[in-house]
Design a protein around this nucleic acid. Structure first.
Lengths: 146, 146
DNA sequence: CAATTTTTGCAACTAAATTGCATTTGAATT
DNA sequence: AATTCAAATGCAATTTAGTTGCAAAAATTG
């Protein structure tokens, strides 16, 4: 499988040096369907120092590879940006979903935020967080119901 | 003026004991048009211990008097709930606005979020955060422009 | 493969938030 | 209004999150 060289290409495209840590972090995000918290990273990649993981997250964000999703519990999580993002510009008009059962946050790339006009205000950015029960948890909690 | 007894009533209605600190915190929120951070509280109410302020915020949230608005800078802010909220149920389908000039976050109670249907997901709550330039800052930064 | 720049890991540090506990205060009851 | 019990407060100590400085290691460039 060619994963490794794909990862390298992705990092290069975002103006990031190729290091073991960055490759592992990138892979972690790619193989996970939901947004990861710092804690998730720390638990999943014990071979790297906390500080290095913080710095990796920050450089990924700075270079447009990740975006930060603030959470009402105070712990932000992070998800891969769609291809539109880069070093210069970030576009995050997509919708996030938080499941109240499993707690995972995910991006809903297919959906975009209905543009709202607010009188007397100039709106340049918007972020929408939905919550409820996600696809997986719906299946596993009520399989017989319908 | 009857403020004081109004405050008491509000606290009682939310199943909260009446204390000096709670009255002052409630008043602070009522007299401020934007959401307050913990820091705002700490600076504005120096007569109380930080710990007490933390606990006051938490009990207000628990009893449905305040809601927490996560901020992308990591510092949440807090705003009074509309009347629908109580001990049992929280409804926060209103819109929040963050001004990139003054940094203040406010609720936009007149606006509600267009209901989004997402296939395979059960949506129970939604929160929309807009950002841009608020009414006040628009006026003060470009008074001659129109 | 040598030179230069960036990244990493460690230790120390700062700041935010929580916990335990003794004391004080609020409110229900007599 | 005095008594009682539960809840709230303040302080000290602690935990947790995140950052900074710096020397060593690794990555890029030519």
């Amino acid at each position: 499988m060619m994963k490794f060289s794909e990862y390298k290409k992705t990092l290069k495209n975002h103006d990031l040096r190729i290091t073991d840590c960055r490759i592992d972090v990138l892979e972690f995000f790619l193989k996970t369907s939901y947004a990861l918290s710092f804690r998730d990273l720390e638990d999943g990649l014990k071979e790297y120092d906390r500080v290095t993981l913080y710095r990796t997250l920050n450089s990924f964000i700075e270079k447009g590879l990740l975006h930060r999703i603030p959470n009402d519990n105070g712990f932000a999580s992070y998800a891969l940006c769609l291809d539109e993002c880069n070093n210069q510009e970030h576009h995050h008009d997509h919708v996030h979903f938080k499941c109240n059962i499993c707690g995972h946050i995910e991006c809903l790339p297919g959906y975009s935020i209905p543009k709202l006009q607010v009188e007397d205000y100039e709106i340049s950015d918007q972020s929408l967080l939905l919550s409820g029960v996600c696809k997986k948890c719906l299946k596993s909690t009520a399989p017989s119901e319908n």
